[in-house]
Computed example of a mutant assay.
Amino acid sequence: MPGEITDFAEFVEVNLPRLLRYGHALTGNPHDAADLVQTVLEKIGSRWPQVLRKTGDPLAYVRRSMANAHISRWRRHRRENLVAELPDSPTLVQIDPFEHEPLWQALRDLPPRQRAVIVLRYYEGLSEAEIAASLGVAAGTVKSQASKAIATLRGRLRGDEEVEGRKPV
Rank of each mutant, 00 (worst) to 15 (best):
P2F: 07
T6M: 03
D7N: 14
F8L: 09
E10S: 11
F11E: 04
F11H: 10
V12S: 05
L16E: 12
L16T: 07
R18S: 14
R18C: 07
L19I: 06
L19D: 05
L19R: 08
R21V: 10
H24P: 00
L26E: 01
T27Y: 01
G28W: 01
N29F: 02
H31N: 06
H31T: 13
H31G: 08
A33V: 06
A34I: 05
L36S: 05
Q38V: 11
Q38N: 11
L41N: 08
E42H: 11
I44V: 15
S46A: 12
W48S: 05
V51E: 06
L52N: 05
L52M: 07
R53C: 03
T55Q: 15
G56H: 07
D57K: 09
D57M: 04
D57V: 06
P58T: 04
Y61T: 13
Y61C: 14
V62D: 03
R63S: 03
R64N: 11
A67W: 01
A67V: 04
N68D: 13
A69S: 15
W74P: 02
W74M: 07
R75I: 03
R76Y: 06
R78V: 00
E80A: 15
V83Q: 14
V83L: 12
L86P: 03
L86N: 08
D88Y: 06
P90R: 11
V93H: 10
Q94N: 06
I95Q: 15
I95K: 13
I95A: 13
F98L: 15
F98E: 12
H100E: 12
E101V: 14
W104G: 02
W104M: 10
D109K: 13
P111D: 15
P112G: 04
R113P: 01
R113K: 10
R115K: 13
R115F: 01
I118N: 00
R121S: 13
R121K: 15
Y122E: 12
E124L: 13
E124K: 02
E128S: 06
E130F: 02
A132D: 00
S134K: 03
G136K: 05
V137N: 01
G140W: 02
V142W: 00
S144W: 00
Q145H: 13
K148Q: 08
K148L: 03
L153P: 04
R154F: 02
L157H: 09
L157R: 07
L157I: 11
R158G: 11
E162R: 14
V163G: 00
G165Y: 04
K167Y: 04
K167F: 05
K167D: 11
V169H: 10
V169N: 10
V169E: 14
V169W: 09
